[in-house]
C-alpha cells in the first residue's frame, strides 16, 4: 500500500535525540521495508524525503538542517504532518550476521533495519559514529532491539576516537561472514564501498539526494544514471562508486 497523495497524521510523541535531531512518532502506520522513505509535506512550507525509522507506528528522525526541518522541529505533540509513500527500494535482508554502520542521523533507516533483522534472529553489530558524543542518535533503539552497539566520535568524547568506518573494519575482522549495511555521509559510504569490494563483503548503502517527485520521473536525484528515489535509495557498492554495468533493471548497460 502506497499513499499517493500527502496524508495527514497526528504527532503522538516527540523525543530529542541530540541538540539538532528529533524523533517524531505518529498516530498511524504504513507498510514499508527498512530503507524505504516517505515524502513529508508541511503545507505552504515544502516537502522533503525522510527514511522511515519504523512503519508501525510511523516514526521519523529529523535533523534540523534548514528551513523545512526547522519548521518540522516547531511542531508539537498533537500537531499534524503529511506524508506520501513509502517509496524506493529498501535493504535486502541477508541471512548472515549483520554489521550496520551509521554516520550521524544516517542511523535512521538502520534502526528500522536492525529491528527487522533481530526479529528474524540475525545477529546485529552496530557501528554508530558522529562528530561529538551529543550527536550520537538512536543508540537506545539499537540496544533495545538487541544489537551490540559500538560508538565512535570524531572528537573522542565517547567510544572510539575516530570514524565509524574504523569501527566497521574491526567488526568485519571479527565477523568475516557478515553483510554490511550503511547510511551516512557520502564520503563514508564511498569508503565503506571500497572496503566491501576489497574484502568481498556484500554491502548495501542508503544514499541521500535532493528529490522533487519521489516517483522516478523528474530526474532530480540522478546518481550516474540511477534514480535514488526509485532504483534506490539503497544501492550496491558498485552503484555507490558509479561503476558502469550495474543498473538494477533489465535495461542495464550490457
Amino acid at each position: 500500500m502506497t499513499l499517493d497523495l500527502p496524508t495527514a497524521f497526528r504527532i503522538r510523541d516527540i523525543r530529542d535525540e541530540s541538540p539538532t535531531v528529533r524523533t517524531f512518532t505518529l498516530d498511524g502506520a504504513v507498510q514499508a521495508e527498512p530503507g524505504q522513505f516517505v515524502m513529508v509535506w508541511l503545507p505552504r512550507v515544502n516537502e522533503k524525503p525522510f527514511s522511515l525509522v519504523d512503519d508501525a507506528p510511523i516514526t521519523l528522525t529529523i535533523a534540523r538542517v534548514g528551513p523545512f526541518t526547522e519548521a518540522a522541529h516547531r511542531l508539537r505533540v498533537g500537531d499534524r504532518l503529511w506524508l506520501r509513500g513509502p517509496y524506493g527500494r529498501g535493504f535486502e535482508r541477508l541471512a548472515r550476521p549483520a554489521v550496520l554502520v551509521a554516520g550521524g542521523y544516517g542511523a535512521a533507516p538502520l534502526a528500522f533495519l536492525a529491528r527487522r533483522l533481530r526479529a528474524e534472529g540475525v545477529e546485529v553489530a552496530v557501528a554508530l559514529g558522529a562528530k561529538r558524543a551529543c550527536d550520537l542518535v538512536l543508540a537506545e533503539r539499537f540496544r533495545d532491539a538487541g544489537c551490540s552497539v559500538h560508538l565512535a566520535t570524531e572528537d573522542g568524547s565517547l567510544g572510539h576516537r575516530g570514524l565509524a568506518t574504523d569501527v566497521a573494519a574491526r567488526l568485519l575482522d571479527a565477523n568475516p561472514d557478515a553483510a554490511l549495511y550503511a547510511c551516512g555521509p557520502e564520503a563514508m559510504l564511498q569508503r565503506l564501498a571500497h572496503l566491501c569490494r576489497e574484502r568481498g563483503v556484500p554491502g548495501q548503502f542508503s544514499m541521500e539526494r535532493m528529490m522533487k517527485c519521489g516517483l522516478g520521473v523528474c530526474g532530480s536525484c540522478d546518481h550516474h544514471g540511477l534514480l535514488v528515489c526509485r532504483d534506490g535509495p539503497v544501492f550496491s557498492a558498485d552503484q555507490v562508486l558509479g561503476a558502469r554495468g550495474d543498473f538494477p533493471s533489465p535495461c542495464g548497460r550490457a
Binding site: 499517493d4 515524502m39 515544502n46 522533503k48 519521489g214 516517483l215 523528474c218
Partner: peptide, 16 residues
Amino acid sequence: PNPTVLAWGHGLINAV
C-alpha cells in the same frame, strides 16, 4: 519548491 509532482489518481500533475 516541493511538492512539484503528484500522482493524483488518473495521471500526474506537475509544477516543477
